[in-house]
Amino acid sequence: MEFTVYLAGEIHSSWREDLKEEAKKLDLPLSFVGPMENHERSDHIGEEILGEQPDKILRDDAASAVNNLRTELLMKKSDLVIALFGEKYKQWNTAMDAGTALALNKPLILIRPEELHHPLKELSNKANVTCTSIEQATKILSYIFETE
């Protein structure tokens, strides 16, 4: 049995590749999907498809419409969502994606550093599991496939 995992979170670091590599080392039957990782493309996809917009707000709205469609479709097709809250970047998209996963009743693993315990306590309480590292999340994934 293979599961599809939606990887929600910031797109500026290599955390997705790190998690995929850990899963590969453990030979886990997983496929991964997630947001557009090319930030420039993500920001401009609305105008690329729908045409030039008259101002920055409408440009952002057009891009958001296309990106939200992508997120909703890929998340609905996923079996599980992993949302990473890093230490460096603002995490609005991660919070939105984690909330969407909960609204869709998708199992959710939340990765967050201990320093973010307090601001994420309610979200953490709703997640199926909260951990502090990619390695822990990968071990959780591995446990799903254990038989004894």
Rank of each mutant, 00 (worst) to 15 (best):
E48H: 09
A83I: 08
T71C: 07
I57Y: 11
L73C: 07
L69S: 11
A62H: 01
G86P: 07
R70A: 01
L84F: 09
S64D: 01
E52Y: 05
M75K: 04
N67S: 04
F85I: 03
A63K: 01
A62V: 04
E48Q: 08
W92D: 12
I49D: 12
N68D: 13
L80N: 03
K88C: 11
V81W: 07
K76R: 15
K77T: 02
S64A: 14
M96P: 00
K76I: 11
I49H: 02
E87K: 12
L69Q: 02
L84A: 10
N68K: 12
Y89G: 00
I49Y: 05
A95C: 09
A95Y: 07
D60W: 12
E72V: 15
D60M: 06
A62C: 15
I49G: 06
M96V: 06
K90S: 03
A65G: 01
P54Y: 09
L58R: 14
N68E: 04
I57P: 00
N93R: 15
N67L: 14
F85T: 13
T94R: 00
E48K: 04
L69Y: 07
Q91S: 15
K56C: 02
A65T: 12
L50A: 06
K77M: 09
Q91H: 11
Q53S: 05
A63L: 12
A95Q: 04
S64H: 13
F85Y: 03
R70D: 05
N67V: 11
M75R: 02
N67G: 02
K56G: 14
D60H: 10
L50G: 13
K77E: 12
R70P: 00
Y89H: 07
L58E: 09
D60K: 09
L58V: 04
I49T: 11
V81D: 00
N93W: 13
D79H: 15
V81L: 07
K88Y: 11
R59P: 04
R59G: 06
R59N: 14
D60T: 02
G86C: 13
W92I: 09
R59L: 07
Q53C: 12
A62W: 10
I57T: 10
G51T: 12
N68P: 05
V66K: 01
E52L: 14
K77R: 14
G86H: 00
I57C: 09
K88D: 13
M96T: 03
K90W: 14
Y89R: 07
D79E: 05
L50R: 15
T94C: 09
R70H: 02
L80R: 04
